[in-house]
Design a protein around this nucleic acid. Sequence first.
DNA 1: TCGCAGAAGTTGACGGTGTCAAGGGTGGGG
DNA 2: CCCCACCCTTGACACCGTCAACTTCTGCGA
Lengths: 196, 196
Amino acid sequence: MAPTSLRDTVLAAAVDYIADNGPDGLSFRQVAIAAGVSHQAPYHHFSDRRGIFQAIATEGYELFTTAMLESLAAEPDDPTTALLEAYVNFALDHRGHFRVMFRPDLCAIADSPELQRMADGSFDVLVDHVRDLLGPKAPLKDIRARAAAMWSLAHGLSTLLIDGPLEAKIGPVSSRRALIRAVAEQSGLANSPKRH
Amino acid sequence: MAPTSLRDTVLAAAVDYIADNGPDGLSFRQVAIAAGVSHQAPYHHFSDRRGIFQAIATEGYELFTTAMLESLAAEPDDPTTALLEAYVNFALDHRGHFRVMFRPDLCAIADSPELQRMADGSFDVLVDHVRDLLGPKAPLKDIRARAAAMWSLAHGLSTLLIDGPLEAKIGPVSSRRALIRAVAEQSGLANSPKRH
DNA sequence: TCGCAGAAGTTGACGGTGTCAAGGGTGGGG
DNA sequence: CCCCACCCTTGACACCGTCAACTTCTGCGA
């Protein structure tokens, strides 16, 4: 076992809680006493309640970026679908992180330069892929719209799967992978021809 | 001025607050004293804090359904884009409602039959449109995937626009309408041929 | 008209929470 | 030996959601 500092313990406990119950009921004090320390101990590692969320989000964006990059490397012939799948898989497998990363009211991305940098890094993976896909001479307007479309599709599918209403209406999903690929195909975004 | 009951006053104040600050910092007590009553008065109209969110969500789904139906009636030649635009417009113009509607931890849709019914009604507009679009003989699997794709695109674009990161990365959006239509075009979802 | 039941609103209290302020203990370097 | 930086504890404060009991108002049947 690594020398788990109090900081790491608190962070892991918070992520677990958020994955199960959402970020809003998270209690600074409960996390502390669950870790066996006083209710004020975490304040030596996080400035605020917000500080915990910023740390979680920073960690999340780091994992997110590597997950997307690995998916691109593993499936170079259909990078759009690979990216979409990596996005959704990350959201579902790291709900604790994902639920915080896109809640600016919780983590206030702009207030933490490091967090801002990590978030930009994640989004750049997506935008770079679109730029690569459409070619360097594509009009900026198209690149932006395509990136927004891909991002929206991935993000919407992720949040709808996490928060429930989709499965309830669309029916039970036998295979996550099959659903993602079917959605990618129906949306017209998958397997777009490269024009290098 | 209509005879604004305390219930309506509280609801409107809560929606306004949520639109500006998100639902999580909303204080039952502050809303009450802002309305000029004691901190317990709203309990005669809402059972819980959750009751307020359920009422907001119910109201929201009602507005949401009519907005989508109106858009379909107004633009029958490209219903998919119309629906997408109505979805995003509703989210941006009714942030207070939208922020609550898709937060099951706040409004616990399953606990309120009326709310469940309203939510189902909204989603049925979308699913019905897809069924109409692909024709009655389309395989169920395709209908589901197409509905999931449309829904994801609309929902993702909405949440990304509301919560910020999209505009920061994609660049400032001159016209909301232009962005929505460009996204619809870049994905292959717009103007799909009907097969009746 | 009287009486009364029920709705609407008030006041007070309780436990829980985030956060500020101050104190304690411990290990390492001068 | 002393001092200081670090980690943590204790205590207090205001605010929050909620329960309980009380008052005030209102409409309606006898």
